[in-house]
Amino acid sequence: MQITQFPLGTRLSVLWRSFFIQALWNFKSLLSVGFTFSLLPAARKLYPDSGERINFLRRQLAFFNAHPYVAPFAIGAVLRLEMDGHPPEKVDRFRDALIGPMGSMGDQLFWATIRPAVMLFGIALLRVFEPWLNTFAALIIVLLVYNIPNIYMRWHSLNKGFELGYRLIKELKIENYERLLLRYRILGLVSFVIFLAELLERTVETDILHTLVFMLSMGLTFYIRRRWSLIYTPVLLSLLAAFILGLIKFL
């Protein structure tokens, strides 16, 4: 092994390719094709000999899964371990061991916290602050608030994975991102409260049946979602309740 670090251009190329990591999501190997595709520029530097490179790439095609935003952790770590000349079976086992922690961390961080919080923030911006804020400006703010952590996490995880190698496993804990989580939770909750207050105000002003539909649908949805983890049923029941109350109004 001759190289000790990848040039910035190669790392940026890997980062760019990581945006396609889910492009060939399939039931057999999940993200392995996107993972291998992301590794290609670095593999060319790491293994100038085509035989070695083919072996390396074929191993990566076997199976891989991760949250797309944190998958570069594994890309960086695999490159570090390959560069240091660790046995291929150990590298593969380590990559597979990262799948669970990466998935759990990414899902909690982005799907369960940052994305809902930013969308609630967007709703509050567009609904409450709309008279003062241009719609496109609001959309750009929303996209920035979402994508700054998205792109930062991809770049940070690529470099961190490369820096830590086997020690990466200690980094993959949601506790390491508590401050970020807290900020986005507060953003989401504040936005939701603003939106809810505005919605309630308008609902109460309309008529009593409006308020009744609102309270009934919200309570029903929360209860059913919590009790049975259903998604379609509470919405359909809310619509049924709305229809019945509409019928009462009609009669």
Binding site: F192, L196, L199, T203, L209, H210, V213, F214, M215, L216, S217, M218, G219, L220, T221, F222, R225, P234, V235, S238, L239, A241, A242, F243, L245, G246, L247, K249, F250
Partner: peptide, 16 residues
């Protein structure tokens, strides 16, 4: 009029 509460029902469901 039968469908006049559908929008608020969906918004409320979302809040739930």
């Amino acid at each position: 009029i039968l469908f006049s509460y559908f929008e608020i029902a969906v918004l409320a469901s979302g809040c739930g």
